[in-house]
Design a protein around this nucleic acid. Structure first.
Lengths: 340, 340
DNA sequence: AGCTTTTAGTAAAAGGTTTTAGAAAAAATG
DNA sequence: CATTTTTTCTAAAACCTTTTACTAAAAGCT
């Protein structure tokens, strides 16, 4: 026997009033007489009544939670310290407003379906551009949305100076005299190298490239090593690099996880860091500082990024139509033990 | 001008059919003729129609996402590596089933309100017991629920042998001859020491206690140092300990974050680890292995815990009524550089 | 041709809430 | 006391979808 859900009518019947009165009791108590109010609350408490959130949302159009959409599996999101920090930042705002945070699994193909089904008032899109075809429905149905690490004009965007940070990192190594530098990039779909110049990874790459060119070096796709964005990925890539004839004196990685993998693999191979191998990562995740040797890296204000994104989204939600704003937060080269 | 949401009737009108037909097109296409079907899909595509998830949920009772309820702020959840691993585990299952994961802000007082408002099909409760008064509505309205790190009989539970793991840790230090051991416990509400014996922290404490008693030592609440569960918390607590007359030769911490803080503070004070100070944490978060000196700790299968919890919840959802199952996963003492 | 079965589609109810417009009763006003 | 205003409460519409029960037309059968 499945217990029937308690509805507003059940409470109304028990309290001897109309369903409207019960609704008023919770939403506009000033509309009701004092003792009726008491009676309704009493009945509701006894029956354990709580308004059906879907019925409420159907009417009001709002459900009280935000969606975070990342074109990756949920499990990979949570294993990524970058997202942990980012979600923490969003969490600060959500806590303040008593709002839930829905992380969405997105098998790349059915992004559109995920958007349609999600019980949220608005989205934060990470690593997707406004002109992505599957993002179109959000525009069409004008659902409040904020884009992070991606381009857009109708929606507000929050980005970070990836190009500048990468430039600084590469310039630093080049100024130190390094000429054999390898670059660990995000893995590309279908191993198609041109994809590597898209998105966040692409922006970082262009920063490295600019530094190389200013130093009078040819930019060569041979420098690039597509790598899975994880510690293991970094280890694997570096082990492969060591197997080659020409060994790098320095490694630039587009993510800290990869860089840490490189450091681990180099330590196992008894390379001295930074003498035999210099490494600079990207992101400045907490582990970068805590590991030893501590990782040199490019800091980006991840938590602030999350906080700002949530803030923009919530403002848009509260104020109805909201003018799109575009933010570019600074990045900073942080030198620790894996360089110099 | 706010764009009106496209409804099923809009599509119906455009395709020249009844709303029912449109619904059938998406849910029971075999009920419709081939060319009508085409016409409906065409109209839906042009208008950018997607069924309102709330209306659908109102009818079907299911919305396709799971709630994770932790009696902490969202922001503190994501900054906690334990939860990152736990959510990753849940994420594996959610990915498989295409289900969203809603993390809920819970200001302790309005836990009940959060439960009532959440657009989810079921809950995973972390660190709450079934008999918690605010959990009652879940039972009353029999919403599928799984309890993690807490007790329950009606709901399935997933726990870990906290007591046994703690016992092993304490026994190891005592066997090594340590007699000046301090124990970093979870902070208690209102600084009321008796709360320390509740919940997960309490189970771990009882493990330490058993080892102490078997070693013929008095158990003394003076050993206990309530500490905020973070790296900074651990640092602060250890700095206070060092300021005292009697210095500990070893520290047991109920969480790795605290333990890491202790190690950091001890390093800054130029203590040699493990010679001057031995440390054993709890949880075995990824950082424990990667930091240096690598942290000795008690491993618990956190990701598996998350996976199992989600699995149990999803099964309960799919199979309707489901018999409660109770799991107790093993813990293992992992000795690394901060001991012996 | 007359009957039954199948196919293709529709009307209406159900799901639970909020809000608008309005009614009845009570209180205030002159 | 009659009239207006205020207070307290209700009926009904709206929100949007799915499902059940049903009809009309077409097809199959003897």
């Amino acid at each position: 026997m499945t217990k029937q859900r308690i509805t507003i009518s059940d409470v109304a019947k028990k309290a001897g009033v109309s369903p409207t009165a019960v609704s008023f009791a919770f939403n506009k108590p000033e509309q009701l007489g004092k003792e009726t109010l008491e009676r309704i609350f009493e009945a509701a408490r006894e029956l354990g009544y709580a308004a059906n959130p879907y019925a409420r949302a159907l009417h009001s159009g709002s459900i009280g939670s935000l969606g975070v959409l990342v074109p990756q599996s949920i499990s990979s999101i949570f294993s990524n310290p970058f997202f942990a920090a980012f979600l923490q930042g969003m969490g600060v705002m959500c806590d303040e407003k008593g709002i839930g945070l829905l992380t969405l699994a997105v098998q790349d193909n059915n992004l559109e379906a995920a958007i349609a089904k999600a019980p949220v008032d608005g989205f934060v899109l990470v690593g997707l551009n406004e002109d992505h075809e599957e993002v179109a429905p959000l525009i069409k149905r004008n659902i409040p949305t904020v884009i992070v690490d991606g381009d857009g004009s109708q929606f507000s965007t929050v980005n970070v100076d990836d190009e500048g940070g990468a430039y600084q990192a590469a310039k630093y190594l080049l100024d130190q005299g390094h000429r054999d530098i390898r670059i660990l990039t995000f893995e590309t779909p279908y191993n198609h190298l041109e994809y590597v110049y898209f998105g966040v990874g692409g922006r970082r790459l262009r920063g490295y490239q600019r530094a190389f060119q200013e130093a009078g070096l040819d930019w060569n796709d041979e420098y690039l090593v597509p790598t899975i964005a994880s510690i293991e990925g970094g280890q694997d890539s570096f082990m492969q690099l060591m197997a080659q004839k020409r060994q790098p004196s320095a490694v630039l990685a587009v993510s800290d996880a990869m860089a840490i993998g490189v450091v681990l693999a180099a330590k196992q191979a008894n390379l001295r860091i930074p003498q035999d191998l210099a490494v600079i990562g990207f992101d400045d995740i907490p582990l970068a500082e805590l590991m030893s040797p501590a990782l040199s890296t490019v800091n980006q204000p991840v938590t602030e990024k999350g906080r700002l994104a949530a803030d923009l989204l919530i403002s848009a939600l509260e104020e109805g139509q909201h003018k799109a704003q575009h933010f570019m937060l600074p990045t900073t080269l942080i030198l620790r033990d894996t360089t110099r």
